[in-house]
Computed example of a mutant assay.
Amino acid sequence: MNMRAMFIDMDGTLLKASNNISTRNMEAVNTLMNQGVKVFLATGRHYEVTAPYHKELGLRTPMICLNGAAIHDADSGKTIQMKTVRLNDERFHHVTAESAWNVIIHTANGVYCKKTNEEIDYWTQVGRIPPHYIGDLRQANYQDVLKYSVRTGTPCPNISALFNKEAEVINWNDGFELLAPNVSKWSALKSLLREYRISPNEVVAIGDGPNDIEMLRHVGTGVAMGNASEKVKAAADFITGHHENDGLAQFIEQYLLKSKQSYAI
C-alpha cells in the first residue's frame, strides 16, 4: 500500500473506553512513524483534551480538532486555522434552552455549557482548564463559536434539520453537532495535505463516527472500526477490529508495516 500519511480519530478508534492508548496501539503507531509515515490526529475534541495524547504518542504534526473547525500547531498549540459558525442564537436557544438537554459551545476562548457532567469533568481533569461558563447560555457572553454540541440523549434528526441552512450538521445517537458550512475533518485534512504536498491517494484515514465519514470516503484508503455504525462502515474500504480489541493496531500491523507482526486480524 503506497501511503505517506495516516489520520487517526481518537474516541472509539485510538482510545479505549477508559480514554487510554493501549500499548499495542502505541507501538503500532510508533513503528509506522519510524517508517517515515506522517501520523495526524483528527478528532471532535478540543485542543486541550487532544494535546496530552498527541504528546504521549510523540507526534510532531498539526492536530485537527473540533471536527475540522480548528487546526493547531504541534509545538505551540497555536490555532493555525479556525472556521467559526454563525447561527441565529436567539432561535438556537429557543429550541434548546427549556429542555433537559445539555448544550456545549466550543469557542476560540474556551467551553461554555448549560450544565456540567462526567464528560466535562474529564475534560477539565485532562485539559486542566474548566469551562468558561456553566449555566443559562442565553446569559453567556461568548463569541467565535467553533462547534455547538446538543446532547439530547437520543437521535434527533428532526431537530438538527432546523439548522441545515445555517450549519454543517452531524447527527449522533445521543444528539447532534453544528459546525460552519462545509467544515469537516475532511476539509481540514485537505488543507494539511496541500501544505505537506501529499495526495489524498497516499492517505489512510481511520475512524468510527459520523464525523469521520467524509474523510473515509475521500482518502485513498478509508478504514472503519469494528465498533462503527453500518453507515460509517459503508463509507470505508476496510473494516478492522473493535477499539477495545486494538482494531487500529490490527490494521496497521496487517497492512501498513514493512515488517509485519504475528498478530491476527
Rank of each mutant, 00 (worst) to 15 (best):
G58V: 09
T31C: 11
T31F: 05
M6R: 01
Y53V: 08
A17V: 06
M10A: 06
E56L: 15
M33N: 02
T79P: 03
S18V: 07
Q35K: 07
M82W: 06
I71H: 00
Y47F: 13
M10F: 07
A28W: 01
E27Y: 07
H46M: 12
E27F: 08
A28V: 11
K55P: 01
H72N: 14
K55D: 11
R60I: 12
T23N: 15
A42H: 05
H54V: 09
T50S: 14
G68Q: 00
N20P: 00
Y47E: 08
R24S: 12
I21L: 10
K83M: 09
C65H: 01
D9M: 01
G36C: 11
T61K: 07
G36P: 04
K83D: 13
M82F: 09
R86Y: 12
V49E: 09
T23G: 12
H72G: 02
T50Q: 10
D9E: 06
V49G: 00
M82G: 03
G36M: 14
K16I: 05
I64M: 04
R86G: 06
A17M: 11
V49W: 05
D75F: 14
N25W: 10
T84V: 14
L57S: 12
N20K: 15
A51I: 10
V37H: 04
A28Y: 05
N20L: 11
T23K: 14
I71M: 08
N34V: 02
T79L: 12
N67V: 04
R45I: 04
R45P: 05
V37L: 08
N19D: 13
L14P: 02
F40Y: 15
I71A: 04
A17Q: 13
V49D: 06
D73A: 12
D73P: 03
N19R: 15
R4P: 02
L32K: 06
V29H: 03
A17T: 14
S18C: 10
E27C: 02
A51S: 13
D9N: 07
N67C: 08
M26I: 06
A74W: 11
P62D: 05
Q81I: 08
I8F: 04
A42N: 08
T13W: 03
H46Q: 11
I80H: 00
K55I: 13
I64P: 00
A74D: 13
P62Y: 05
K16Y: 10
D9R: 00
N30F: 06
L14Y: 07
A5M: 10
E48R: 12
G36W: 12
P52T: 11
L15S: 10
R45M: 09
V39P: 00
L32P: 02
T61F: 12
E27S: 13
R4C: 03
G44E: 04
K78A: 15
S22K: 08
D11N: 11
L66A: 08
N67K: 02
G58L: 08
L15C: 09
T13C: 11
H46N: 09
S22Y: 10
P62K: 01
T43K: 03
K78V: 13
